[in-house]
């Protein structure tokens, strides 16, 4: 049996050697169940050990291995060679992020944005552990659950042209996380977070391209979160107009 192979283009960038990225082509044995991540591991183990990329869980939950597969943001562990074979595959680091090296991008700005939106329960008053858990019905939980499923992989930022044009925009994942806490019945921090939402860089930086929700590997639907926040922000604005300050 002759071994099937597939060609993979990897965008390389080694900051200590290169001034700009270049493409390196590898020929990798093909099997139908092989993921892009496994192909990269094959490359690192057997073809060129200097290719750098992030990965860990292999099961689409840790959010490490985001990259562009044929210009579409994907998780390497959840994209499979079979969906491209026998065509050549092109792999590039996540768009809209600076390239640290090879397929590794600089995530600092993304992480900073997650940090800034106050992603924690701000209770009305401190609840004692002896009082037990909050009551929260499945209905109340359903209001925010979807927006709590984000794995912080950054695919939505790579899909967002608004973030590409102006990276001051808070962006899809952070705003979805903000919505997650605002919509949680245990939380009372909405007023604080609406200040972030109402800013120019908040929800109004979004022009509803909607591609973020298409590429999201966890169906978080950040575009929906942002539109819902826009409604809240508009309400805030209207109420503000009639409220003497």
């Amino acid at each position: 049996m002759s071994e099937l192979t597939i060609e993979i283009d990897v965008l390389r960038y080694r900051p200590e050697m290169d001034n700009e990225p270049f493409t390196q082509t590898f020929e990798v044995p093909y099997t139908a169940e092989m993921s892009i991540l496994e192909a990269l591991q094959y490359i690192k183990d057997h073809l060129d050990s200097t290719v750098s990329f992030r990965w860990s869980c292999r099961m689409a939950i840790c959010g490490s291995c985001g990259l562009m597969v044929n210009s579409v943001p994907k998780l390497g562990c959840k994209a499979f060679l079979r969906d491209y074979y026998p065509q050549k595959i092109s792999l590039e680091p996540l768009a809209n992020f600076p390239i640290e090296r090879d397929l590794v991008v600089v995530m600092d700005d993304f992480i900073k944005k997650l940090e800034e939106i106050k992603p924690y329960i701000i209770p009305e008053k401190e609840k004692c552990l002896s009082e037990g858990t909050y009551q929260q019905t499945p209905e109340q939980m359903a209001k925010f659950k979807q927006f709590s499923m984000c794995i912080n992989c950054g695919l939505c930022y790579a899909a967002c042209p608004q973030y590409a044009l102006d990276n001051k925009f808070t962006g899809p994942a952070a705003l979805a996380l903000l919505a997650r806490y605002n919509r949680d019945s245990r939380d009372n921090g909405e007023a604080e977070r609406m200040k972030i939402v109402n800013q120019e860089e908040g929800v109004w930086g979004c022009t509803f391209v909607g591609y973020c929700s298409v590429v999201c590997p966890k169906d978080v639907d950040p575009a929906a979160a942002i539109q819902l926040l826009k409604v809240e922000s508009s309400k805030d604005y209207l109420i503000g107009m009639f409220k003497p300050d």
């Binding site: 329960i121 552990l129 858990t133």
Partner: peptide, 22 residues
């Protein structure tokens, strides 16, 4: 149970019964 309750206070979305308890 105390520490799991603490996680709940911090926002962990534990699955619930219809009445809203854990």
């Amino acid at each position: 149970a105390k520490q799991l309750t603490q996680l709940e206070h911090w926002g962990c979305p534990w699955s619930r019964k219809e009445d809203g308890s854990i």
